[in-house]
Simulated scan of single mutants.
Amino acid sequence: MKKFSIRMMLILLLMFGFTPLGFAEEINLVGTENGEPVFKFVGEAFGKLNQGVRVNIPESIDSGGGIKAVADDRAIIARVSRGFNEKEKNYGLSYIPFAKTKIVFFIHRDSGVKNLSSRQVCDIYSGKIVNWKELGGKDQKIRVITREEGDSATEILEDKLAGFKDIKITPLSKTVLNETDAIGTVKTKEGTICFGSFGALKNADVQILSLDGKTPDAQDYSLSQTLGLVFKEKNKTGIISAFVEFAVSPAAHETIINSGGEPF
């Protein structure tokens, strides 16, 4: 009888929302991979202040995928690394920016280069410069890695890196679908170069490059993107509202900085 009662109690607890991990509420923050460490660290900090709450960072569906998921009511809130495009402005969603992260170029550690100019970046990605020795590095073939079309980091380069939007990417380049693959490829293959968010690369075994003589932590470093949250105003209630307010508050600033970002 006692075993039966315990079993029935467990069934009832599960039916009414109890989970073995003890999380009363979860926030699934769908969207971009860019700036993911910032979203993750802010989510963890929020969870520590709100016992029983967990912020999940699902596999990336990009900023556009996150925005569309919220618009179609397949998600409550999304993580994005850009604002709305013209089509998305018609969805009637709210967008709250809360942090910035830098876009950096990174290469295999053995290539022997630590700085590139904007012109040199364009010449590498267009195929005009094909060996690191042309830039003072090793006699080593340059292997160009790029991101898929529509990726927000690529959009930042096209918008802010002089000349990049006008070049035709070398047909010898390889496209990777996410930042994890980009880091793994550059780490293991000699001569490779790619770009991604500074926060995700701070502890990676790659060489992060200065651009035009400026390091990514310089105040006037030119390549940055804004991280934000997207939701329907009607859904900004309860724990969702609390999370949004936390992300934009001074209480989150130290966490944002420690994860490689800057408070907005």
Results as ranks from 00 to 15, higher is better:
35 G>M: 03
239 I>M: 13
15 M>S: 03
67 I>N: 06
223 L>E: 06
94 S>C: 14
79 R>C: 03
65 G>D: 05
26 E>P: 11
26 E>F: 10
71 A>G: 07
241 S>D: 15
204 A>D: 02
32 T>K: 01
180 T>N: 02
256 I>P: 02
16 F>S: 05
264 F>R: 07
111 S>G: 05
204 A>P: 09
252 A>L: 09
16 F>T: 12
192 T>I: 05
43 G>E: 00
264 F>C: 02
44 E>D: 13
98 F>T: 11
18 F>E: 02
193 I>V: 14
156 I>L: 04
177 L>Q: 06
177 L>K: 11
197 S>Q: 06
263 P>M: 08
45 A>R: 08
36 E>V: 01
256 I>M: 10
88 E>Q: 01
139 D>V: 13
239 I>V: 15
209 L>Q: 03
46 F>I: 13
103 I>V: 07
45 A>I: 03
201 L>Y: 10
218 A>V: 13
17 G>W: 05
250 P>Q: 07
7 R>T: 06
116 L>W: 13
30 V>I: 05
75 A>N: 03
76 I>E: 15
53 V>M: 11
18 F>I: 03
88 E>F: 01
157 L>K: 05
25 E>N: 14
3 K>E: 07
161 L>M: 06
174 K>Q: 13
105 F>E: 03
241 S>M: 15
44 E>G: 06
214 K>I: 12
247 A>K: 04
84 F>G: 08
82 R>G: 00
172 L>R: 12
105 F>H: 04
220 D>L: 08
223 L>H: 05
205 D>W: 14
7 R>S: 09
237 T>I: 15
57 I>H: 01
250 P>A: 08
84 F>P: 05
161 L>R: 01
178 N>P: 03
20 P>Q: 14
50 N>S: 01
54 R>C: 10
98 F>D: 11
64 G>K: 05
258 N>K: 10
87 K>Q: 12
175 T>M: 06
173 S>E: 00
172 L>G: 10
126 S>K: 14
56 N>R: 08
243 F>V: 11
95 Y>Q: 04
8 M>G: 00
97 P>I: 12
194 C>W: 03
48 K>C: 11
186 V>T: 01
123 D>R: 15
100 K>D: 02
78 A>D: 08
31 G>N: 04
19 T>V: 15
51 Q>V: 12
98 F>Q: 11
254 E>L: 10
199 G>F: 02
13 L>Y: 05
131 N>G: 12
205 D>H: 14
79 R>E: 00
209 L>R: 06
137 G>T: 11
204 A>S: 08
87 K>W: 13
94 S>E: 15
206 V>A: 07
237 T>M: 14
15 M>N: 02
250 P>S: 11
158 E>M: 06
126 S>G: 15
79 R>F: 01
105 F>I: 00
223 L>Y: 04
240 I>K: 09
